[in-house]
């Protein structure tokens, strides 16, 4: 089983991000589960959401205490979570990993997702685009699965679907480097 934390600020869409990840993994033929760790539901407050992906049905319902991967949508939150991350931390930033000062044994991958989002979507919407980096580096979900998930979950949001898909593809491409 793989456990993923998505960390963002209220309004950034961390919860939606983990939900789309769960739907995408399911579209790829895996079992999945996504759930938020709700705190104060205010604009700008830190929001954490979890996702589990497994080859077999998932019965466990405890919070995630030790994750395989973390996706950090706002770099100012990079130090503000307690869960141990074992494998990889993806940070949306234009800085270099060593500049973040993280105390972790996990690999750190910095991708300037905001920059791509501003260019492709025209707004700093990074929650969906960030999944492109996750897909490219971890191979836990396919781009096709993500595309189907976004269409299913955001179908009513018109041009935002196409824009997010374009952003995901661009983030995916630069994250492989």
């Amino acid at each position: 089983m793989k456990q993923i934390i998505v960390l963002g600020r209220g309004g950034q869409g961390a919860v939606t991000s983990s939900q789309i990840l769960a739907v995408a993994a399911f579209k790829d033929g895996m079992h999945s589960q996504a759930f938020p760790n709700f705190g104060v539901e205010r604009m700008g407050a830190p929001v954490k959401s979890y996702c589990r992906i497994d080859t077999k049905p998932i019965t466990v319902r405890e919070q995630v205490y030790e994750a395989d991967y973390a996706i950090i949508l706002d770099p100012t939150l990079a130090k503000s979570f307690d869960e141990k991350v074992n494998d990889l931390i993806i940070v949306n930033t234009n800085k270099k990993p060593e500049e973040l000062g993280l105390n972790t044994k996990a690999k750190i991958k910095c991708v300037d997702i905001t920059n791509i989002a501003l260019k492709v979507i025209g707004k700093p919407f990074v929650n969906i685009a960030a999944l492109g980096a996750f897909s490219a580096i971890t191979k836990q979900v396919s781009l096709k699965g993500l595309e189907e998930a976004i269409k299913q979950q955001m179908g009513s949001k018109g041009t935002m679907v196409e824009k997010n898909l374009a952003a995901i593809i661009e983030v995916h491409a630069i994250s492989k480097k």
Partner: peptide, 12 residues
């Protein structure tokens, strides 16, 4: 159903 820990959990 458990609030949040089932009401807000996405699963198949």
């Amino acid at each position: 159903i458990d609030g949040f820990s089932l009401s807000h959990v996405y699963e198949p």
